[in-house]
Design a protein around this nucleic acid. Sequence first.
DNA 1: TTAGGTGCAAATTCTTTGCACCCTG
DNA 2: CAGGGTGCAAAGAATTTGCACCTAA
Lengths: 168, 168
Amino acid sequence: MKAKDGEIKARLERFERTCREAGIKLTHQRMEIFREIAESGEHPDAETVFHGVRERVPAISLDTVYRTLWVLSDLGLITTLGAPRERTRFDANLARHHHFVCTACGLTRDFHSDVFDDVRLPDSVKALGRVERTYVEARGLCNACYAATTKEKRKNGTKKTAPRGKEK
Amino acid sequence: MKAKDGEIKARLERFERTCREAGIKLTHQRMEIFREIAESGEHPDAETVFHGVRERVPAISLDTVYRTLWVLSDLGLITTLGAPRERTRFDANLARHHHFVCTACGLTRDFHSDVFDDVRLPDSVKALGRVERTYVEARGLCNACYAATTKEKRKNGTKKTAPRGKEK
DNA sequence: TTAGGTGCAAATTCTTTGCACCCTG
DNA sequence: CAGGGTGCAAAGAATTTGCACCTAA
């Protein structure tokens, strides 16, 4: 529980508002799942959220957690760490570089930036541990996916669109 | 194939040297698996590497690819995008922030940096697509894992240590 | 020769889906 | 009351492991 009370309250209100606007139901489960993440300064995975929520909603099921998590993500109420719904990817480029990642198709491209390379991390980070590598991740839609999205005008609510990886 | 020939050659030489120093065998499979990633400007997942290598080594098996990938990663010859061996994690903090991630235990903490927030992305990124969010990821070992590693002096070659998530 | 490495097949772990019932709007 | 949402069970992916044979050193 790292987030402050006021901030949590604001998050919950935003949650209710967004659900109403999107016309989706405000169920007990969704409420608690969102609260679980909102109250946590951690960045829990589905299983962790599940365990947390289960203490308050014993009948909750793991698949509801998964489904809800993606709904919240589609609504823009939460985000994912790293690329969403992606497998682990590998990189043989040991030189300092950064990544542009398309959140829809997973396309990933390196880029360089001397400016970023020169920025020093704040001291607060040093207190956490030894940093070995720092890089920037720029997330968005690649040109192809942006074009596609514009065309479809987000017809599909559950973003079935997002494929499991594969570059162009 | 985005990397230049010279760079690829350098990577392969580094690979051979590192394997010898680490005292692990220089097998045909390892060679080709590393080459597959080194020659690619993409950041392939295990399955993609597998398909690529199979064209040159038809008998290769997917599990060898997985095993080799982690060996290479432990040797520091390749890195992973996002946290290695981690499940998808969720974040309800919509405010601009960055992450410190422990590569050993998965511990993740937010941090803030006005300086980073103000840096503009290079134009080369704009050509790739629409960036929606930019954040910095500082990877390293948290204090607890750093202490543990120092004690063990990396006894375990295959880093069996790395658990599947869970914060403290 | 010989220990580390590989392929195969089976086991795990993580995530998604189909379906019938339930509850919010 | 109607349709979206949930729980359950079972399917599907992705990744790992045990074991016997093979091969680089």
